[in-house]
């Protein structure tokens, strides 16, 4: 117990501090407010205007908009916060006062990473919570499927966060890690498309075609497939309290954790001998 508290006490303090600091960032609050406005606007306003005129199509559209809004704003928040926590602390030199305390570099990184996860989770819960209420008020059924969706979305973000964080440890400003994070998020959501490119590019045998095919293959095999984490179609089309079908939840969680550990290990390798 004593050993545990000395090994994880430091990281936990850093995590709580990181959370408190990060949650005050203007850009992050901006993203959060925008997403809440989209969810609130799309799910409440239409029904207030004329509740009787509501159709099934409307509801599907609303669900689609809201799930997409959570995914996109959530990803923006994830990338932004994962990319900027370390560079900002180096920039303001707060890192000097922290690393000179009896906190090892791995404990420090762990604390920062945990703090980032807390921020992501709280934001997801706020966005998901509002949508959950909206759906419940409309349909009168607990939309438990939405909870599964939020859960899986978090594990999707965990992968993005770990890799953006690793790049941010090597960077001197948040710009490069932000761009890289967005790149990974977008391409990893398009892996099916990459596979398609791979197939088609192989057909002509021209040099450029082959090169594009190779790049697509490489990306496809390295990048995680983030589409697996989305149950949007089921949310839009199915019953709100269905159990999630078509996805292997434990397997996805494991998949995400493996990527996260790999990302964190990269971050540590970069940061271990970083001069600040």
């Amino acid at each position: 117990m004593n050993y545990l508290s000395s090994a994880f006490g430091g990281p936990w303090c850093v995590a709580v501090y990181t959370y408190r600091e990060g949650i005050r960032r203007k850009l992050l609050i901006g993203f959060l407010i925008l997403s809440l406005l989209v969810i609130f606007g799309s799910s409440f306003i239409t029904s207030f205007v004329d509740p009787t005129a509501e159709t099934d199509i409307d509801l599907k559209l609303i669900k689609d908009i809201c799930v997409t809004a959570i995914a996109i704003f959530g990803a923006l928040i994830t990338v932004y916060i994962s990319a900027s926590v370390i560079p900002a602390e180096v920039e303001t030199k707060v890192i000097y006062t922290v690393l000179s305390k009896p906190v090892s570099r791995v404990q420090y990184l762990l604390g920062k990473f945990l703090g980032i996860q807390l921020i992501i989770i709280v934001n997801l819960l706020l966005m998901g919570g509002l949508f959950f209420m909206a759906l419940y008020i409309r349909q009168g059924i607990m939309p438990t499927l939405l909870l599964w969706s939020i859960f899986l979305t978090y594990f999707e973000f965990l992968i993005i966060s770990a890799f953006t964080f690793a790049v941010s440890c090597a960077a001197t400003s948040p710009l490069v890690p932000t761009l890289q994070g967005l790149f990974i998020y977008i391409t990893a959501n398009l892996t099916e498309y990459l596979k398609d490119v791979e197939h088609r590019a192989g057909q002509t045998g021209q040099f450029l075609d082959e090169a594009i095919g190779k790049i697509a293959t490489a990306l496809y095999s390295i990048l995680p497939n983030l589409q697996n984490f989305s149950i949007k179609m089921q949310i839009v089309n199915g019953q709100p309290n269905d159990p999630p079908t078509d996805v292997m939840i434990p397997w996805l969680v494991l998949y995400s954790l493996v990527y996260a550990v790999a990302g964190f290990a990269c971050a540590y390798l970069v940061f271990r001998r970083k001069e600040v």
Binding site: V94, V98, S100, V103
Partner: peptide, 30 residues
């Protein structure tokens, strides 16, 4: 644990109170 350090021109987090900053750093010392 035996060293205290005041960096040159460092910034201290604006969103905390004086005593909160000290307890944050104190916790880092265990």
């Amino acid at each position: 644990r035996n060293i205290g350090y005041l960096p040159e021109g460092a910034y201290y987090p604006d969103f905390l109170r004086g005593e909160e900053i000290l307890s944050y750093y104190g916790r880092l010392y265990g």
